[in-house]
Structure formats: structure tokens, C-alpha cells
Design a protein around this nucleic acid. Structure first.
Lengths: 189, 189
DNA sequence: ATGATTTTGTGACATTTGTCAAATGAATTC
DNA sequence: GAATTCATTTGACAAATGTCACAAAATCAT
């Protein structure tokens, strides 16, 4: 088994011990990818069979609104990349693109999903991933509703300082839901 | 089995057939509740062992921001009420309160959760609920980022016209992230 | 029904944020 | 390392929204 697979599998099997057989079965549907900055993983409006786990690198997701890119999230090391729409075989609403040269693990959802109904460990493994994702979404909503833009900026700066080293302010501004000029002025204080 | 349980169970077992035994096991942890308007189901900052399914009625969720209520979502017939934070045994960030006299089914999460690791049908049943919830959250985020307030209002009016019959505009305004005066002015057009 | 309470609507004004334009600074490419 | 592209900052102004105050309408309770 590729040594990188272990990080990914461990990350989502904290609440149950997976048998060797299950681990092998999951690994059958994983691959390691090394891709360059600006590579597009998933295109808006297309169906796509894979989800990804970031081993090393940075990824962003955006969609076009009146021709302007709106950034919806960023993923760094140990984050998952993908969406439930994707998992449910709906076309993606977002484009997902690398911000840095990155190492990713891809998961073939189309092949792993059916195993949920025959292997209980896989059911709970996938469950852990989805739970984690839903918690992330809940936090995101709370964050975006709860805070004024300046507080969002301060909280983000406090909780995810790496973002500001690695991700252009233009992207962060659109993620926060404000124009880059406004973000620039908030920072001036 | 209470006849109301069937609606709930059918609603989340579209992708697998549950055995009689599993259905009975799930029903052990369900109850029917009839509660009055303004009853508080879950209080902000408290842990809570239950999730709910709305058979009949209307429910809202809100938190306090500088002493002002911010409404985060509304649930009507066939919607789930609860949060992942709740499921993961974290204190609730929101208060959940009935807007109308309602009939609900309560699910004892504390008791049902452990069954996921021994009963694969239950694992996939819960999975269906969580997937559904995560899809709801994705839509909510997309909706809130994608649209200008007037478009949010129009879309909501188009997709959930019942909300406007049953839920005060004050709540809807705060859900849309605008003041009630602004909503009132948007409606004037 | 009647008075009290809650909900919704409207006006005047202040504040925030967006937009456009231009300048500066940083990073990348040849 | 000079040139080119991209990212960030700043200013001036317009547009959108919030706030406060109050009026009108609807709803509730006795």
C-alpha cells in the first residue's frame, strides 16, 4: 500500500478499526496524483466520479457569477476536496482548481459507493467523511452569517493564518463576500 | 408501529430495503410528540440527545447576535430538525423553537448512533439522513453566496411560497441577511 | 368587541460597501 | 535584469442597505 494512503485512511477511521481486508478494498480505488498549479480538477456543470484528499498543496473552488469568479472554499493539507452534489452524481456547480503544485489522493466514488451496502466498515468510513464535511459546512454557514466582514477577516486571520501566506487576497475577499478594495481597506486598520 | 413512523422511515430508505427487524430496532428509539407554538426544542449552548422529523407544523432555528435574533433556517412538513453539532454531541449553537403547534417524531441519537457499527442497514439509513442534510447545507451556502438579496427573495418566493404564508417576514428578513425594512422595500416592487 | 400587542410599511438620513480609475508594489517570464 | 503580467492599495463617487422614528395594519387575549 502506498504510504500516503495511510494518512488518508487513518484520518477518517478514528472511531472504528478497519480490517486488513477492508483497507485493501478501499485502497483498490485510490490513486496518488501529482499535479501542477492551475490544473483544473473538476469543471463547473460537469459530472465527475472522484473526490480528493490533499496530501500537500492548496486548492480552491469557485463559480462564475455574472462572469466574475466567486471563491467558495480553500483546501490545504489533510482537507477533502469534493462536494455532495458530486457524490450524488449531480453535475458540479463549482470549478475546482489547484493554487499550488500539489499531491492529492483521488477516490473513485463510483466504485466505492456501492460497497457501502455490503461492507459495514466502508459504510462507516464514508459516513465519517460525510459527517466531517457536513460539520465543515455548518461552521462555514455559522461563520458567514454570524460575523461582520471585519470580524470574519479577523477570525480567519486567527484560525487559518496560513491562508494569508498562500492564497491571494483577491480570492480571500471574494470568499468573505466583499470586494478586494473593501478587504484592502479593512486591512489598513 | 405508529403509522407516523412509516413516513419518516420511508423518507430515508429509498436506496435500500430495510428488514422488519431493523425497522423495529429503529422504532424503539422514536416517539411522537405534539407540542405547542413557542415550545423550545433545543436551547443554545446546551447538549441534546434528540433530532426531530416534522410530521406537521413549522419550526425555526435562531441564535443571538448582539442580543438580536438571527434566524438560520425553517423546517416544515417532512423536514429534519437538528444539527451535526448535535449529532456529534457538541453543544448547540442555535435555539430551535416551534412557530406553529406541531407534530414531530423524535429520534434518540444517543441510542441509535452506536447501532451504526453493528447494523449495516442502520448505518446506511443514518447515512441517508446526513447526506440529505449536507446537500441541504450545500444548497443553502450556494443560495446565500450566489444571489443578491432581491434574487434570494424572488427564488425563495418561487421555491417555498408556503414560507411566506406561515412565517413572519421579520424572521424571513433575518434569514435572508437583510433588515426587515429592506425586505419590506423589496416587496414594494 | 375592544384594547393591547405584534407585525409590517414608509420616510429621512447616516453608514457601509461597491465601482471605476489610476498608481504602486510584487512576482514571473524571457 | 528588463519587461510584462498580476496583485494590492488608494481616492472619488454612486448605490445599496442599515438605523431610527413613527404610522398603519393585522393579530391576540380578555
Amino acid at each position: 500500500m502506498d504510504i500516503l494512503f495511510k494518512t488518508f485512511i487513518d484520518h477518517f477511521s478514528a472511531n472504528q478499526k478497519l480490517s486488513e481486508k477492508t483497507i485493501a478494498e478501499i485502497c483498490n480505488h485510490l490513486s496518488v496524483l501529482n499535479l501542477d498549479k492551475k490544473h483544473v480538477l473538476i469543471k463547473e456543470n460537469q459530472r465527475h466520479d472522484f473526490a480528493y484528499f490533499v496530501v500537500k498543496g492548496a486548492v480552491r473552488s469557485y463559480y462564475l457569477k455574472d462572469g466574475v469568479e466567486v471563491n467558495t472554499w480553500f483546501a490545504l493539507e489533510n482537507d477533502m476536496v469534493g462536494s455532495l452534489h458530486n457524490f450524488k452524481d449531480h453535475p458540479s456547480r463549482e470549478t475546482i482548481e489547484l493554487i499550488e503544485n500539489s499531491t492529492l489522493i483521488s477516490i473513485n466514488l463510483k466504485r466505492v459507493k456501492p460497497l457501502m451496502f455490503s461492507n459495514i466498515q466502508i459504510a462507516n468510513f464514508i459516513n465519517a467523511i460525510i459527517e466531517d464535511y457536513a460539520l465543515f459546512l455548518e461552521d462555514k454557514i455559522y461563520f458567514s452569517q454570524m460575523m461582520s466582514s471585519i470580524n470574519k477577516y479577523l477570525i480567519l486571520l486567527d484560525k487559518e493564518p496560513q491562508l494569508f501566506q498562500r492564497i491571494p487576497l483577491t480570492y480571500i475577499a471574494s470568499f468573505l463576500g466583499i470586494s478586494r478594495e473593501t478587504l484592502s481597506r479593512l486591512r489598513a486598520k
